[in-house]
Amino acid sequence: MDQNLDKQRLALSAAGCDKVFKDHISGTVTKRSGLDEALAQCGDGDVLMVWKLDRLGLSLPHLIEVIRELSKRRCGFRSLFANIDTMRAGGHLVFHLIGALVDFERALIAKRSKAGLAAERSRGVRIGRKRAMSAGQVRHARASLEPGERPSDIAQTTQVGRSTSYRALDAEKGKAA
């Protein structure tokens, strides 16, 4: 679907924008040349203006990150549609509240994730990537290694990489000791 930017361009021009930057790509792409160029040109006393908040940030955390970066550069931010202006006290407050809520949500998610992982571990569930070699394959590799078969041949027989075979044999050796 082709985006028509005329409505946005007209609104930004009517609001007094000197320069208009555009990205004509999917909203999920993180590398956006128009945004990068706009941010590079923002400096002390400038105001980055967008038509809607979703035109700037890919997600709420990304939006907050961009606004914080602008603030460090002493650059303001204004959203026409949401009527937010960080150059005014009310707009600045709104962004601090949104940022605090985003940080709070991140902390809650991290806490729930850690609690979930701890609960799984306590039930004996192995967390992480599935092992490349089963216990039977490791036993087979160990038995084959003793008669003098080369590790690369054992890896090929068990259908794993040579380094995976070495790591599994070393781990098994550590358990036996």
Rank of each mutant, 00 (worst) to 15 (best):
Q3A: 15
N4M: 03
K7Y: 09
K7L: 10
Q8W: 12
Q8T: 07
L10Q: 11
L12K: 01
A15T: 07
G16T: 03
C17R: 05
D18Y: 14
K19W: 08
I25A: 10
S26G: 05
S26I: 02
G27H: 10
T30Q: 09
K31I: 05
K31M: 06
R32Y: 03
R32E: 11
R32A: 08
S33G: 00
D36V: 06
A40L: 09
Q41V: 01
G45L: 05
D46H: 15
L48P: 00
L48C: 02
L53G: 11
R55L: 09
L56C: 08
G57T: 05
S59K: 04
E65I: 05
R68P: 05
R68G: 15
S71M: 10
S71R: 10
R74P: 00
R74I: 04
G76I: 12
F77G: 00
F77C: 09
F77A: 06
N83F: 07
N83Y: 07
T86Q: 01
R88F: 12
G91P: 00
L93D: 10
L93S: 12
F95P: 02
V102R: 05
V102H: 06
D103S: 15
D103I: 02
A107L: 09
I109P: 06
K111D: 14
R112P: 03
S113L: 12
S113I: 09
S113N: 12
L117N: 06
R121C: 06
S122T: 06
S122V: 07
R123E: 14
V125C: 10
R131W: 04
R139I: 02
H140W: 09
R142L: 03
R142Y: 03
R142G: 00
A143M: 12
P151A: 13
P151K: 11
I154N: 03
Q156F: 12
T157P: 06
T158Q: 12
Q159C: 09
R162P: 00
Y166S: 04
R167M: 04
R167H: 07
A171Y: 08
E172T: 08
